[in-house]
């Protein structure tokens, strides 16, 4: 057997994995109930099963029909963007908007193909001022502006 459609192949596997996961998790942890009084496991296990079956069809398709290759994953933007977001989220309270935005902008900018320190620094300053004015002052979101140790 040769995989003719790699995209379909991986998509099929992904759907089967998600489907089986929801099915098994629901059946193991929650009650099925009956058609009258459906338990919390009823709907998710039916859907999970269905997803796995459709996933299997997609997978079969991968061996029947010729399809395009999966394009290459670019890990630098992927990791940097996600890392920037998470860094922002977990430092917002301790470091304030000023600190957290710095992390997000610099890490995020590092995910691009080009990193000009001066430009990013200017962008950062503009964004911080804008965010403080709009979100904290204007929309009164309860965010600290400065790092906690500076207050």
């Amino acid at each position: 057997m040769k995989i003719k459609g790699p995209k379909e192949f991986w998509a099929g596997l992904m759907f089967i994995a998600f489907g089986l996961f929801f099915l098994v998790w629901a059946v193991l942890n929650y009650q099925m109930g009956s058609a009258v009084r459906m338990g919390p496991a009823y709907f998710p296990s039916v859907l999970g099963g269905l997803l796995a079956v459709i996933g299997a069809f997609v997978l079969i398709d991968a061996f029947v029909e010729v399809g395009p290759k999966v394009p290459r994953f670019h890990f630098r933007p992927l990791i940097m963007i996600l890392l920037g977001c998470v860094a922002f989220a977990y430092t917002l309270k301790p470091l304030g908007l000023v600190g957290a935005t710095a992390l997000l902008v610099f890490i995020g900018a590092f995910g691009g193909n080009e990193f000009k320190l001066r430009e990013v620094a200017i962008l950062y300053v503009v964004l911080v001022i804008f965010s403080v004015l709009v979100f904290v002052k204007g929309l009164t979101l309860p965010f600290p502006i400065w790092p906690a140790f500076m207050e």
Binding site: C85, F88, L104, G108, L123, L127
Partner: peptide, 30 residues
């Protein structure tokens, strides 16, 4: 775009964080 996308990132992160003032939502967004 190198100027545009970090700006979008900042607005998204702030917006999602503000949903329930919880870092978890931003993690989920990731």
């Amino acid at each position: 775009y190198r100027i545009l996308y970090p700006s979008i990132l900042v607005f998204m992160a702030i917006g999602v964080f503000s949903l329930s003032n919880n870092p978890f939502d931003v993690l989920l967004m990731g």
